[in-house]
């Protein structure tokens, strides 16, 4: 990773770092807000700093914070975090051939530090995996530079947010910025009509089943939405619509 001189002396390290810096303002604002949100939701300073430094997954943190504040059982918080993070499972399937030449420990560390942003930028620069040992090394150097900038920007801005939170009262409702951030990510995931169906069904089901204990409405909403989308997908395949034939 980025602390290895074999990586940070490689020219691709700088390319990766610069690509990440282009997106750093967004990341910084998001990290800052995360720090404020964590403290305003009732996490202690230590808990906020710990979460900001090690969880390193903005959307799952935002989803987990209200559940932690509401005292939901641990498995519900972790299961919710897992579901919000499911997109990374898909990314990991994509990244597998880029990683398998590394030993397990390095695979785990590299994967842990590869956020959505790094995944998108990395696969944009290297659409083809594999190659010679030198090419594999260049890929890892790029990823190290990219993830390094990402990590530093994220963690430092989270710490600043935690410090500033004392001057930002909760009544202002700044926590709503977290919901808007998740909304932006939701929009960026809505790349097909069935994904819109999934979002609509899950949202409606989560409201309808809100009275369930243990925040189970979230799990129920995901299960209903995914099942319905799989059924709709199967029926679309059985009888392809005119639109699909044209496309």
């Amino acid at each position: 990773m980025f602390f290895k001189s074999a990586f940070y002396r490689h020219p691709e390290f700088k390319v990766g770092a610069l690509d990440s810096m282009a997106a750093a303002p967004g990341l910084a604002a998001w990290g800052l807000m995360m720090g404020v949100t964590m403290v305003n939701s009732g996490l202690s300073t230590f808990e906020s700093l710990l979460m900001g430094a090690i969880v390193f997954a903005g959307s799952s943190q935002l989803a987990a914070i209200p559940l932690i504040a509401a005292g939901a059982p641990m498995w519900v918080v972790l299961a919710t975090g897992f579901c919000v993070n499911l997109r990374f499972v898909v990314f990991s399937a994509h990244l597998r051939p880029y990683m398998m030449h590394l030993p397990l420990g390095q695979r785990l560390l590299t994967g842990y530090l590869t956020t959505d942003l790094s995944y998108v930028l990395f696969t944009r620069r290297y659409p083809q995996h594999g190659g010679s040992a030198a090419q594999l090394h260049a890929q890892q150097a790029y990823l190290a530079g990219n993830c390094g900038v990402n990590w530093v920007a994220w963690v430092s801005c989270t710490v600043i947010g935690v410090v500033l939170s004392a001057w930002v009262p909760t009544q202002w409702g700044l926590g709503f910025a977290g919901i808007l951030a998740l909304l932006g990510i939701l929009f960026s995931l809505a790349t097909s009509p069935l994904r819109w169906v999934s979002a609509g069904v899950a949202g409606a089901a989560a409201v309808a089943a809100y009275a369930l204990p243990l925040k189970l409405n979230i799990m129920l909403a995901i299960a209903v939405a995914v099942a319905l989308c799989l059924l709709l997908q199967a029926s679309q395949r059985a009888a392809p619509s005119v639109d699909e034939e044209v496309l």
Partner: peptide
């Protein structure tokens, strides 16, 4: 898998 992430986000934010 491709429908679960957006469902999870919607289930958290819509309420």
């Amino acid at each position: 898998l491709q429908y679960a992430p957006i469902a999870a986000l919607a289930a958290v934010i819509v309420p």
